[in-house]
Design a binder for these strands. Sequence first.
DNA 1: TGACAAATAAGTCTGACTTTTTCATTCCGT
DNA 2: ACGGAATGAAAAAGTCAGACTTATTTGTCA
Lengths: 233, 233
Amino acid sequence: MTTPGRGLHGRVLDTLGPAITAGEYPPGSVLRTDELAQHFEVSRSVMREAVRVLESMHLVESRRRVGVTVRPKAEWNVYDPQVIRWRLAGADRPHQLRSLTVLRSAIEPVAAGLAARSATAEQCAELTECALGMVANSRGHQLAGYLIHDVAFHRTILTASGNEMFARLGDVVAEVLSGRTHHDVMFEDPDPAAVTLHVKVAEAVREGDAARAEQLTREITVGALQELDILAP
Amino acid sequence: MTTPGRGLHGRVLDTLGPAITAGEYPPGSVLRTDELAQHFEVSRSVMREAVRVLESMHLVESRRRVGVTVRPKAEWNVYDPQVIRWRLAGADRPHQLRSLTVLRSAIEPVAAGLAARSATAEQCAELTECALGMVANSRGHQLAGYLIHDVAFHRTILTASGNEMFARLGDVVAEVLSGRTHHDVMFEDPDPAAVTLHVKVAEAVREGDAARAEQLTREITVGALQELDILAP
DNA sequence: TGACAAATAAGTCTGACTTTTTCATTCCGT
DNA sequence: ACGGAATGAAAAAGTCAGACTTATTTGTCA
């Protein structure tokens, strides 16, 4: 997780960001910098910095003589990890989780295919290690241990794809997987079939079999979609 | 495009952002707010706001007694449209274009599949209209007209997918397509086969044939990959 | 080695001032 | 009397300058 207290403006964002992304201020709402500064008991300079950050996330728009207006959801920078965290922490969580899982289902298979072509020996080893760690923690309610390896596995795939855009989704996937374990599903041991699939993906990548790595990963993501009752493509 | 002159801090970002993303300041470089403020001839308050924005993009990190240090590329928020624009405008353009095209190849087929399931009648009409517009402008060096319809087509697919994360990639795809037309390839009329594929995708979506829409779109993106000499999966 | 002190650069606050944009009024012409 | 253009005032963000605070690092000395 990122540093919680990186200055006063960060403190302000910690409450204002979630409030906006939660829809507490509907699109078109107008805030005034001075009022916000008073409300949060900070100086205008600090408040202005916070507004600038929200503006860079396209959450709000600041215009002279008008104020700080909340933008419609469709314009938000929904790939900003901070925005994602805020939304995952709020009432929008289920919806956000679905969006992200669908995104995963598009990205990860392709990433796995690329990883099979360009993964380094170290990455292959890491992958195998993670898969074995998942197997070792797949029985007896060792969810914490399982999760660590699961996250590391997917992160390694995304990194090994060699595509920077894919690699940067590692944190997002981590958040989705953690969330799934802690809150929603997974009250019991993980599906053995899923565990096996991970082992096979590690194999396929190690052998450089791109098509197989992609197909197997697609099966994993289909499973993730089904867990959320999303119609599998 | 976004508004160019949204305040002094925006002006500063317009030169500092591209400079950082271009690698002009290598990772670990230390900048000092006061010096920057002097250099850009703005007050410290303005400079601080600019730094905050760069910080929210994970381009830099500001620490007391140290200064503003440039983060390694791997930590940047590479999905931030602003960051993408900066990188597309700089020396990193070819690399960025490849990353984005690979991203497209993962996203768009899935988006098309989803669109086939959930597109509205209006969206289907829009799609057909775009495809016809592409056909009409596919001969006789009418690249500008072709591009408009091409961009609109892909944007509509992404929107019609019903997934907000996909929808937000519309701008990125637009930028990639425009760039391709203006700079790199496409000196002559577009590939007739590609045009036909677009028409067929519109058909498949209209008929609700998800698998076919996905497969046809995959063929389109494979073409885009090949244009950049990227090994097709 | 550890504690303490100095230096440093970001962080914060305040108040005065500027600039842009909007809204309401007024004034003119038809 | 009505519509529209010009004018003025108000409102809120934007900018600046200066003083002060605080955390962090570095270096010195016991």
